[in-house]
Amino acid sequence: MDRLKSDFSTVGIVLMGVGIVINIAMGRIVTTLSLPLYLDSIGTIFVGAVAGPWVGALAGIISNLIAAFFGNPANFLPYIPVAAIIGFMAGLFSRYGWFKLWWKFILAGVITGVVAALISAPITAYVNSGVVGTGMDALTAAFRGMGMSTLQANFLQGLSTDPLDKSISYLLVYSIIQALPNRYLDRFPRAEYVR
């Protein structure tokens, strides 16, 4: 209970806000550079890493609410559970000491990506009738053409992008943590797990 209270300290709250800003701004920059990635959970992962699973999960939830506001609600609102899981998992990886070695970051990214694909698939299939409204849908169409169900096609489509996207996101979080002086890292509720 005390742990939770310190996670949600004023610093934790401000950190959550900054994480959300990073998510949404990164999503936009990636679009500007037209990279085939999302990178829109970097902030959530960072928040989870330095403030624990609960702050991370909440950062993901609010992030998708606000992204809906700035972009397309259909792309973000249904995926709130995915964003929450990504933040929660980052907090767990951090808790178990994965955020001290670079290759563990990549591994954590791959695992996160697989989990994200698993949870996204039924949302895409049942809430958005099997499409995500981008070029990625060509892949879903191809899988459907091979006789797969919408759910299977959506899962494979997610699997083709999410693990790569999340491991690159985790690597970016790694470079942020490396570049941040201890003096600033020290402020965060769970700094001891990433130093």
Partner: peptide, 25 residues
């Protein structure tokens, strides 16, 4: 080329916003 442009673009931006957290809190 575009992927390589990403890091020098975003890292200073992300770091400065994280550094600001302390004062904003």
């Amino acid at each position: 080329v575009r992927a390589r442009a990403l890091l020098p673009l975003v890292l200073p931006l992300l770091l400065s916003s994280i550094v600001d957290i302390e004062e904003r809190a």
